[in-house]
Structure formats: C-alpha cells, structure tokens
Design a protein around this nucleic acid. Sequence first.
DNA 1: ATGAAAGCGCTAACAT
DNA 2: ATGTTAGCGCTTTCAT
Lengths: 344, 344
Amino acid sequence: MISIKDLAKHLNISIGTVSRALNDRPDVNKDTRLKVLQAANELGYVANQSGRSLRQGTTNTIGFFIESGGENGSSNDTFSMEVLDGLQSVFSKYHLDLIVLPCSTEEDAEDYLKRIVARRLVDGLILTATQRIDSKIEFLSKTNIPFVALGRSETDNKHPWIDLDFEGVAQLSIDRLAKKGHKRIAIAISQNNLNLGTIFLNSYKDSLIKNNLDFDSDLVLHASSNGEGGYVIADQLLKLKNRPTAILLVHELMAQGLYRRLSEENLLAGRDLAVIGFRNSEQAKMFSPSLTSFRLSLRDLGISLAETLLSTMPAFQRHYPNKRLGYIWPMELVEGESDRFLIN
Amino acid sequence: MISIKDLAKHLNISIGTVSRALNDRPDVNKDTRLKVLQAANELGYVANQSGRSLRQGTTNTIGFFIESGGENGSSNDTFSMEVLDGLQSVFSKYHLDLIVLPCSTEEDAEDYLKRIVARRLVDGLILTATQRIDSKIEFLSKTNIPFVALGRSETDNKHPWIDLDFEGVAQLSIDRLAKKGHKRIAIAISQNNLNLGTIFLNSYKDSLIKNNLDFDSDLVLHASSNGEGGYVIADQLLKLKNRPTAILLVHELMAQGLYRRLSEENLLAGRDLAVIGFRNSEQAKMFSPSLTSFRLSLRDLGISLAETLLSTMPAFQRHYPNKRLGYIWPMELVEGESDRFLIN
DNA sequence: ATGAAAGCGCTAACAT
DNA sequence: ATGTTAGCGCTTTCAT
C-alpha cells in the first residue's frame, strides 16, 4: 500500500506539500495541487486513517450504537437501514464516515461503549436502545464525546435526543377510537426495559381520562415487540371476561400474531376488534385488513439525528447553530381498515 | 484521556514494560504485570487504537459490508442482527471488534470499499449483497485484504464464500408440490441483480424436469422482495388465463402481500393456492395460514462466516486449518399450513 | 526483566 | 509556495 512518502517521492516534492494539497489548504500552488490530486488518483492513494487520527486526535468517523442479537424482541430491523441512509446523507457532506457498532448480547453495553470511547474509534455517537434509566447515557455524559440519543430517558444529563411522538400517537389513537364509540380500549406494550413503554402507557392513561373512559389494568397487556408477542397478547385478550373492543399496539409487528390468533377464533380485526398499530411500515398496507398506524420519515429522522449530533460537535456546530436539545418527532395517522367499524 | 506514557509515569516504569505487560508478553515480571494491569484498570486506560494500528499495521477490526437505504427491496433486516451476533461470538475470542459498514445508496459500492481498504479501517471484510457479476469481489481480490462473501458469484476469484441452499429449497419444494399433485407451479423471484434469483430459477427449472412437469415462462414472476412485491405477483398471477395451483417465493416477506391480494378475491393460501416461502423467519408461523418455509440458524451462519474469514487470515488460520472455500448452507423444511391441500 | 529509542503515516508549526 | 521536522501513542528491537 502506498504512503504519502511514496507519493511525494513520485512527484519529487515534499510530503508537507502533498499533505497540504490533499487537504485543500490555501497556501499551495494551483498547479501543484492539481498534479498531486491527479497522482493520488492514479496511484490510488488514500490517507491512512490511523496516521491521521493519531496526529489530529480525530477519526472522522461517527458511530451508530445498536444492540445485536435480535432475540430480545426489539428487532428494529428495517428501521435502521433508512435511518442510516439519512444519517449518511448529512455526514458525507463533511467527509465523516458512519459505522455501525453492534454490541453483542454477550457483552455489557456500558463496557462496550467504554472500550469504543477509550480506543478513540469514533468522534461522535448515536445511541439507540435508550432505557428509562440508562447507564450508557450516564457514562457518555461523563466523557466528553459528543452523542445524541434516539429515545428519551429519565437519565437526562442535558444531552441531545430525539424521540418519536408516543404521546401524540396514544392520544390521537384513543381520541379516534373513543369517537368511534369504543369504551374499553386495551394497550399492548413491550415487556423490556425500554423507556417507550412507560411513556406510551402514561399517555394512554391521560388520554383515557380526557375522553372520560375508565382505566382498567386488565387491559394493559405486556409481551415482546414482535409477531409472537402479538399472538400472546391476543390470547390474553380473548381470555378476559369483559373483552375490550379495541387495542393499541406499541409495535406494528405485533399485529401479525394478533391477526393470527384472532383468525383462529374466526375473528377479524376491523370487524370484531379495532386495532391500531404504531409505525406505518411498508408492511402495514399489506396486512389484511390493512393496519391503521402512524407514518414518519425514517430518512428525515436520520437527517435530524445527524444534524443534532453535529450541532454539538465544536468542529461543525457553526453549520447548525440553533438546534434544540430534545425533540419529539411527529407522526402522522394513516387510516387503514383495522379500526374501521363503529360501536353502535 | 490517559496515554501509555501517563500510565508508565504513574507506575515509575518505562512505557516499554507497560506495553509488554498489557500485551501479555512472556518476558515481564509477574508482579510488574499485576501492578500494570491493576493501574490500567483503575485509571481506565485502554490503548488508543490509532497508535496501535499505525505501529502494527493491523486494526483488530473486521468490517461487515452492507448496503443501507432499504428502498431497493432487499430489507434483510432481522437477518443481519442474528448473523452479527454469531460473528461476534467468534471474533470476540480473538479480541477482534466487528463493525458494520453501511454503504449509502448515494455512493458506489466499489468506491466505498476502495476507501475503506485504503484507509486501513479493517483487517478483514464480510461481503453481502453479492451480485452475479460483482465488481466488489473483483476489486477485493486484487487487494490482499482477506474477505468472505455471503452469497455465491460468477465473479469467482477463488475467494471464500458461503451461500444458502437455493438449489435444495427449490428442489424440495417442487418435489413436495409435485407429490401433492400440483402440475402448474409458479415461481416468484426478485427483480434485482442479486445472484440468488438466477440460481433459484435454474434449480426450479431442473426440478420441474425431474418431476416431468412443463416449464412455462408465464409462471416466472418478477417483483421486489417485500410485501409489496408479493402483492404485485399475486396480481399478475390472478390475471393469468391458466392459473397455477402453487407458487414458490424467493423471499418470505412476499407472502404478506400475496396473502393480502388473495384475500381481496376471497382466496386463501393453503386452500386455493399452495404457497411455499423461503426463509422460516419468526414471522412465518404468525401468518394465517402459517407459511411453509425453510429454517436455518442465522447465528450459526454467522459463526461459520467468521471462521471461514479467520481461516484466510495469516494470524488466525492455524485455529481453522481445514475450512472449505465455498460452502452451501443447508436449510430444513418447516411444514406450515400454506401448502396443505392436495390436487385431486 | 527492564529501559531506551526507532519508527509506523500523517499534519502542522516553523523555517525559508 | 514549499521544505523540514516534531510528535501524536504505540509496539518492538536492541541494549543492558
């Protein structure tokens, strides 16, 4: 592999000049710059990142933290891809590379982050899998590495975050169902430690009150955020002596298992039970009946995450002067068939 | 952030000894080593990766290449997570970190890889999104960076690869459907450039011949590998004057849209049309009717990918002496309800 | 068993 | 505008 020394020798100029030319410094002759860039291109020279990082103390790399090993029911799969693309569309403007840092199930997330930070692998981090009490946030706040969290947390150290509008979704859903005459509305929330469950549940309660509906703890169902979880929830729901007429899901994947369990009893969403899912994924439309759920642009979310992060990084914040610290990402109702019917 | 110099000063010994102690060199006093490790732990010292990389010419990092921006219909989402976990379970034994390298839709994959390789970001690569003719493979073969491809390619430069058993799936499926009396069996393949489509289609043809069934090009349907694609395919299928009685899907996500379109005509998979999906994801069981498809352990696949890669890396190949270059990953039929019925 | 020092590739400060 | 050189943090060779 070719180094800057080789390139300089090849051109018969000093490595200093080569470096300056490649880094677009102003104090370099136009012709020289051209020659250098051309030679670099021809010989396929790209700066060794370790050399640069060591010298500059910066890696030009942003890390996107996730937890691998989808067994735990999050499986936010398709989600990430589009978000990643949005992130990259911003970072690429500043020649920042995005890498995904998957923390294995076998490793403690905080230990993992400690290693990443200490090794100086990235200049900034995007955090996911935010928990209600989150040691990752606590740790990162102590270091001075810039980061932005996807998801609110009660562990709030004045760090920037963006979260989905769980309140809005819960409220709009309950309002809508109440208007259709539903009195007993269940809610399916995830059983893991993520913060969103709590937020969603609280908004659900508030919205019930607003609509003069009674809260019944029997109607709060817990399961994992996937198809299986939906099946379990439908099963619990069917066993209730006083069944709800509607249900609100914290994760759209749950709909699959829910529909399945209903069909086993010859019941149908949108006829026997009103169902509202959470995120309007590409799949929502393909359910039968199609799932009423909430749309958001994941790519735009990625863009906003990137901009928020950059606004906290000294080298870039001039580009993004007035970013908010916390931001609730709006979601828009997409009417489906799954909550079509009215209660007399 | 603390450096090895600080640590050495703190302990009143030379940085050479500290380095040796931390790297488990034999020629260091037991007590010294203990003291160093303890101090490192206390002060939270972790070696700066750039410094190490620069000196050693190695990064102790493996890259997992993917293409971000799921619009293109691959959306292999949940897939990756489990594979990643398998990979990490192997790499962690050797203190190798795994990072995911998402190539944005806006960037050419080969250019992206060139940058990654030239910057010396990783010691080895796992390639995905393998194409029939794949410039990524061609490029990587020219460099001397170790890599393993997930997916076969006609661009074969004696590089290691692992691929799913498309032949086996096609053959078992056709045999099974033929045995149930089906004479007209359609196949839904992906419209992108990935190699798997070709392989799947060829095996399908071969298996038809083996079962004395006629090949009809009308029964080869193309669409994107997602719910939407399944909808489109069902639509095409319904328009055929001479409809097939069974269909084989190259991607299980297609089943969603297919079921949907069928339901719009009051048709049902497993009663009016036999459907066999590809991978038995967690979702398959949650379809109604449940989807006959093929199981594989993604975690084990990840483990095998990792081992294959290591077997080509000089520093590790002694641990994995006799790995094959190419390997077809077996898949096991899981009977569902979607192909239940018999043709008289 | 330990210390001293070279040098990996790069950028930036200083010199010219 | 260009050349020269120190030094980022680390490992490893050569002394001792």
